[in-house]
Simulated assay, not measured.
Amino acid sequence: MQLAAASGLMSLGLFLVALGLLVLLGGGYWLTSRVKYRESPRPRPEEQPHLPPEGAVYEVRENRESAEVPKTPEGGRPLTPYELTNMDTRPSESKDRPRWSKGSSGSFGGGGLGAH
């Protein structure tokens, strides 16, 4: 029963915890204001970026295809990874966008039935 009784020590402990939180919040605000004061000022309107003289730049959409992997000659040794350089891409002749097969989401575990 004595443990359940209200004590002044418990009230003092809660008051000190609340006071500590207030000190932490105030210190954080003070530190943040010091850091912000040292930052460079915001750019003025005349320092903002402007559109190029020819106008807005628009997105270019094109299909790209990769370069062919070199074929191994009959009876020759296979190529090792370091012999295959970064394979460049080039614009595709076809303007049709590649599509996944019907009924497939195009990704593993995408929820579709896949190509059956």
Rank of each mutant, 00 (worst) to 15 (best):
L31N: 10
R97T: 03
V35Q: 07
E46Y: 08
M87C: 13
G28M: 00
G114F: 00
E62A: 15
L9I: 00
Y58G: 14
A56F: 12
G114W: 00
R97V: 03
E83A: 01
Y37T: 08
E39P: 03
E47M: 15
K36C: 01
W100N: 03
S104M: 01
W100E: 02
G103S: 03
L16F: 09
L19A: 11
L22M: 09
W30C: 04
G27V: 03
A115N: 04
Q48V: 06
L12C: 01
Y29M: 02
R64D: 14
E59Q: 07
D96C: 00
K36V: 01
E68H: 11
P73T: 01
S107F: 06
S11K: 01
N86K: 10
P98D: 09
G75I: 08
F108Y: 07
E59P: 09
E39I: 11
P70L: 10
V69R: 00
K95W: 05
G13Y: 09
N63Y: 14
R97I: 02
A4H: 07
D88W: 09
P53N: 09
Y82R: 11
L21Q: 07
L19W: 06
P78Y: 15
L84G: 02
S33R: 11
T89N: 06
K102Q: 04
D96I: 00
P98N: 07
T85N: 00
S101F: 09
L79Q: 04
S33W: 08
K95M: 04
A56M: 13
P91C: 10
P73H: 05
L3K: 02
S105M: 11
S107D: 03
V35P: 02
N86R: 11
L113Q: 05
E59Y: 07
L14Y: 06
E65A: 10
R61A: 14
Y58A: 13
L22C: 12
P98A: 10
E39R: 14
D88M: 06
L84V: 04
Y37Q: 12
W100H: 03
L3I: 03
A18Q: 05
P70R: 06
R34E: 10
P91E: 07
R64I: 15
N86V: 12
E47I: 14
W100P: 00
G109C: 00
E65P: 08
E68Q: 12
S92V: 08
R44K: 13
R97H: 05
L3R: 04
L9P: 02
G109M: 00
L51Q: 13
T89R: 04
E93I: 01
P43Y: 00
E54I: 12
E83Q: 06
P45K: 15
F108Q: 07
V23E: 03
K71R: 02
E39G: 11
L31V: 10
T85F: 02
H50E: 15
T85I: 02
P52I: 13
E62D: 14
R44L: 14
A4Y: 08
D88F: 07
A115I: 05
S94M: 01
S40Y: 10
N63Q: 12
N63M: 11
G55M: 12
P70E: 08
S107N: 05
Q48M: 12
E39C: 13
A115R: 05
A115E: 05
A56L: 14
V69W: 02
P52R: 14
